[in-house]
Amino acid sequence: MRQYFGRKALIYALTFFVAVTINWMIPRFMPGDPIQGLVARAQVADPASVDAMRAHYTNLFGLDVPWWQQYVNFWAALLRGDMGISIWAFPTPVTDLIIRAVPYTLGLLIPAILLSWWAGNRFGAFAARRKWLDNTVLPIGYLLTATPYMWLALLLAWTLAILAGIFPVSHAYSFAVQPSWSWEFLGSLAVHWVLPFSSLFLVMFGGWAIGMRNLIIYELESDYANYLQALGARSRLVRGYAFRNAVLPQITGLALQLGTIVAGALVTEIVFSYPGIGHLILQAINNQDFFLLQGAFLFIVLGVLVANFIIDVVYTLVDPRTRIRMQGNAV
């Protein structure tokens, strides 16, 4: 068991190192010069002043040293918890921007992932044993899961917000209210949350429901299910066993899907101008903000790795087979 998690931790550490390195490289390969944009914003005409400003900013962001030293400095700063200063929102530190955006992203992602996974599994298992439900739900499920997150988001925004006017089109809360712990603010927050949440939930729900339906059918035809039925066990028992066994691959599926889900959430945030990490990434790209982009990616990498690790642990807890193989003892 110890050895297993030791090996896992090593793999995660390696993944983290490689991912962070790529994060550092990507913004630097982007065309354009961020400093130029920053200087242009100041609207100074005098060439001497421009040169002085350019030198000042280049030095401030640490871009005046060779690239390998920039890389080493980057790691050194990162280990201190310093992710640099944003160019777009100069001079706010990247860490502050991310901390401000994180609650919105997590508030969308965590409920959407967990609820769609739970509801999709329940519903898929339920649909698998009713022919009419199976025949109607299956095509809808395929349609939903094949829909790009962004497209469904646009569709929902157009129908429910613009045409029907039931929900607001964009932002996390109405500009008429100030962020506070008042009912008015929380209500505004909830109303704005519904559409981005639904677009994420629906797409994922379709995928989980289809997966579960297929797994349940497979499990109900397995040998142990046949044996129990031949001995006259109630179908409740057989279905309970089948559900539990079918959930196991779905847990692995969740781990595999996390990356895609996070990417989907980022696009959804952009569609709804939801002030989360996805929104920050869009701003960072538009403004060639190396440091903000690095910070946002770093947060995503960390989040996906942590979530994967949790799923790994949960899987060994719920599947006796992996546990026994790890301990390697038989009767």
């Binding site: 040998d223 046949n226 044996y227 031949a230 006796p320 087979r321």
Partner: peptide, 19 residues
């Protein structure tokens, strides 16, 4: 079933729920 007629199936190796 089970009380009057019972069966030892062909697939005894996988007849029990693995989990």
């Amino acid at each position: 079933r089970f009380s009057e007629v019972s069966i030892i199936p062909q697939y005894a190796m996988s007849a029990m729920n693995p989990t």
